[in-house]
Write a protein that binds this DNA or RNA. Structure first.
Lengths: 196, 196
DNA sequence: GTCTATACGCTGATAGAC
DNA sequence: GTCTATCAGCGTATAGAC
């Protein structure tokens, strides 16, 4: 891995751990084993490096998620599998965590990757809900966009509860609660996770 | 308001806006119109001041919430009213936002108020769900703790989606989705917000 | 491309006068 | 209780040599 790459990867980790406000150029350089000069040669400053790092994290997350969501199964099964997948809960979401950073939110360049990621995710889940409704799997009363937003919010809020308590349990509890509520709207009662 | 009070209130606002990592002693002093000496006279340092400020914010939030939740109405109505109440969505939650702060999470003194707040909130909502089940309002299959966790997570995650997009809409959408899912588990179909 | 030097303001305090 | 002075180190760079 070359110096530029190491700087980007170092910034990705620090943004995840500490946020933009809590990430210093010095810390990036230490993590990347790069000098001051290298960093300012490859990037105009902290902001530009953070932007590149953020875009990469967003891309990575989207790739993983799409893989999960396009796997086989009914609509309910796919959504449940996504919600219930293994996560490093106490580390939080590498994208969502930056929504609390005041300087990320204030800078359109840094905020855009967050917005794009969550817009895409909500749309993608809404599409699956809509398919489920079209195939008679879900009640037609289910609003696809609102249901999708609720599912994404449960994940993001689950991270908050878990970190606040120092345990992954509240995350798991919230996700179980959400899956149970969604399952109850399925016309055929498919138990998620067990192919019928 | 005396100097000590102004320091606490200044710290509360800065913790909400910028988090612990992003809040500097100098900024607190400016906001409180207090000198360096005053701050270190009343508090041993940044951490102690933050702890006092955090406890007060937690107490305030709990007071407001309890008022909402103990108002009249059916279980569904009370939960829906709490979820749908007016909030300054783009500012985020003054407690939940600190769950992303690495130094808050690393310090048990600072983390405790977060943990206590969310533990209390989940228990309180679970109690209401349980009452709803006992009175035949909700399906007995509803797990009270998981449902409560999901509702709290929707709120916290809703803030994340709203801030990421720069609009309150995704928060509203997620809450509508959650209320709709919960309403569907009510045995009598009460439309929340409209007394039947 | 990477290194060292330099800069200026801020961070998070402590000390001591008033 | 509040003020001013002082401090070592960090944050976020820029300049210029190699």
């Amino acid at each position: 891995m070359n110096t530029r790459e190491r700087l980007i990867e170092g910034a990705r980790e620090l943004l995840w751990e500490r946020g933009y406000v809590g990430m210093s150029p010095k810390a990036i350089q230490r993590k990347a084993e790069a000098g001051q000069g290298s960093m300012y040669h490859h990037f105009s400053g902290k902001t530009e490096l953070a932007e590149v790092a953020l875009r990469r994290s967003a891309e990575t997350l989207r790739g993983q998620t799409e893989k999960q969501l396009s796997a086989g199964g009914s609509a309910l099964e796919r959504i449940a599998a996504y919600l219930l997948r293994d996560r490093d809960v106490l580390r939080g979401c590498p994208i969502g965590r930056l929504a609390q950073d005041p300087e990320v939110i204030a800078d359109p360049r840094l905020r855009r990757p967050l917005n794009e990621t969550f817009s895409w995710l909500r749309d993608r889940l809404a599409e699956i809900v809509r398919q489920g409704v079209a195939q008679g799997e879900f009640s037609p009363e289910l609003d696809a966009a609102d249901t999708a937003a609720a599912m994404v919010a449960v994940l993001q809020g689950g991270y908050v509860l878990a970190r606040a308590s120092g345990s992954a349990e509240p995350f798991a509890s919230a996700v179980r609660g959400a899956v149970a509520l969604l399952s109850a709207r399925a016309t055929k009662s498919t138990t998620p996770g067990h192919r019928s």
